[in-house]
C-alpha cells in the first residue's frame, strides 16, 4: 500500500510538471501579448462592441475546427466541411421557409450528418484517402448547393431565426459564441472522456495496433466523419443566422483556415496527438490576428500575408519543439 501511495505521489508530481511545461504556455502567452499590444495601439480593441463582434466572427471557425480536430487526430482530414456547411445552410433555409424554424434547423444538422456519413462510408468501405474523398465531396456539396439555389444566395432568411441565432444574446454571451463554446466543450468531453475519443487517438497513433487490439477501426472512423459533418451542420446554423443569408459559396476557404488553426494550436497532422484546448488556442490566434490587424489599420492584402507567415512559423516552431523534447 505504501508503494501505491508512492506511485500516486509520483503521478501527482508528474502531471503537475507536465502541466507546467513551457510549450503549453507559449500559445496563451502569445494570445495575451497580441491582445495587450493591440489594445495599446488601438484602445477600441477592448471595447464591448469589438469583443462581441470578435466572438461572433470566431464562432463559425471554432465550430468547424472542433470537427476538424477529431478528423486530424484520427489521422485524417476533412476538406469538405465548408461545402457541407453551405449545403446545410441552403437546404435548411429552403425547408425553413416552408415548414418552420425547428424543422429548418433540424434539416441543417441532418444535412451535415448525412454528408459526413457519405464521406465516412466512402473512406472506410473503399479504403480511400480522406484527403481525396473529401476533396471530391466538397465539389459535390458546392454543386448541389448551387443547383438548389440556381447559383444565387438565399436572402429570405426568417428574421426570427437570424435574431435568435445570429444577433441574440444569452446570459450576456452572443448566441453564436455560446453555440461555439458548447460545441467545443462537447468535443472536449467526447475526446477526453469517452471510449470513442480514446479510439480516435489510438487510430491516429497506430491504426494497425488499434485493429490488432480489437478496436473496430472502420466504425470509429465512420463516426469521426459523421461528427465532422455534424459540426458543419451546426456551423451552418450560426453562419446563416449571422449573415442572414444562405450562400452556396459560403465560407469558401474557411475549411483550410480550420485546418490551419488546428495545426497552429499544436495538433499533429500525422495524428494521435492534440486536444480541443490546442484547437481553442489556434482558433483564437488566427481569429484575433485578423481582428487586431484590422483594428490597427493594416490592409487586407497585408493581413493575408501576415496570417500565412504566422501559420508557417507556428508549424515550424512546433516541429522544432517536438524534436527537442525527444
Amino acid at each position: 500500500m505504501k508503494r501505491e501511495q508512492k506511485y500516486r505521489q509520483i503521478v501527482r508530481n508528474q502531471s503537475l510538471l507536465s502541466r507546467l511545461r513551457i510549450g503549453q504556455f507559449v500559445l496563451p502567452l502569445f494570445i495575451l501579448c497580441l491582445a495587450i499590444a493591440t489594445g495599446l495601439i488601438e484602445p477600441r480593441f477592448w471595447s464591448n462592441e469589438n469583443l462581441l463582434n470578435l466572438s461572433r466572427q470566431l464562432a463559425t471557425l471554432m465550430i468547424l475546427a472542433v470537427g476538424q480536430t477529431l478528423a486530424v487526430i484520427s489521422g485524417g482530414l476533412d476538406l469538405s466541411m465548408t461545402a457541407a456547411l453551405a449545403l446545410s445552410g441552403v437546404y435548411g433555409v429552403l425547408v425553413m421557409n416552408k415548414l418552420g424554424l425547428a424543422i429548418g434547423i433540424l434539416t441543417m444538422i441532418l444535412t451535415g450528418v448525412i454528408f459526413g456519413l457519405v464521406n465516412g462510408l466512402i473512406i472506410t468501405l473503399f479504403r480511400v484517402s480522406p484527403f481525396i474523398v473529401t476533396l471530391g465531396t466538397a465539389s459535390i456539396g458546392r454543386g448541389l448547393a448551387l443547383i438548389a439555389t440556381a447559383g444565387l444566395p438565399l436572402y429570405d432568411v426568417p428574421s426570427s431565426f437570424s435574431d435568435r441565432f445570429g444577433y441574440g444574446m444569452f446570459a450576456g454571451i452572443p448566441s453564436p459564441a455560446l453555440i461555439a463554446l458548447l460545441t467545443l466543450v462537447a468535443g472536449h468531453v467526447l475526446l477526453r472522456h469517452t471510449v470513442f475519443g480514446r479510439y480516435v487517438y489510438a487510430i491516429g497513433s497506430n491504426a494497425r495496433a488499434a485493429l490488432n487490439s480489437g478496436v473496430n477501426v472502420q466504425l470509429q472512423t465512420l463516426l469521426v466523419y459523421v461528427l465532422t459533418g455534424t459540426t458543419a451542420g451546426i456551423a451552418a446554423i450560426v453562419l446563416t443566422a449571422w449573415v442572414s443569408a444562405a450562400q452556396p459559396l459560403a465560407a469558401s476557404g474557411l475549411e483550410l483556415q480550420a485546418i490551419a488553426s488546428v495545426v497552429v494550436g499544436g495538433v499533429a497532422l500525422t495524428g494521435g496527438v492534440g486536444s480541443m484546448l490546442n484547437t481553442f488556442y489556434g482558433v483564437l490566434i488566427l481569429g484575433m490576428l485578423s481582428n487586431s490587424l484590422n483594428m490597427i489599420g493594416v490592409s487586407s492584402f497585408m493581413q493575408t500575408l501576415v496570417i500565412g507567415i504566422v501559420i508557417v512559423a507556428a508549424v515550424v516552431l512546433d516541429r522544432i519543439r517536438q524534436r527537442h523534447s525527444l
Binding site: V189, H193, V195, A202, S205, N206, N212
Partner: peptide
C-alpha cells in the same frame, strides 16, 4: 513498433486499449 504500441500515447492508454468498457460509467470514462 509497427503493430503493437501507440507511440504517441501514454502507458495507461496503451495498456487499456482493449478494455476501456471496464472503466465507463454512463458512457464516460
Amino acid at each position: 513498433k509497427e503493430a503493437g504500441i501507440l507511440a504517441e500515447r501514454s502507458v495507461q492508454e496503451n495498456l487499456n486499449l482493449s478494455n476501456l468498457n471496464a472503466f465507463t460509467r454512463l458512457g464516460l470514462l
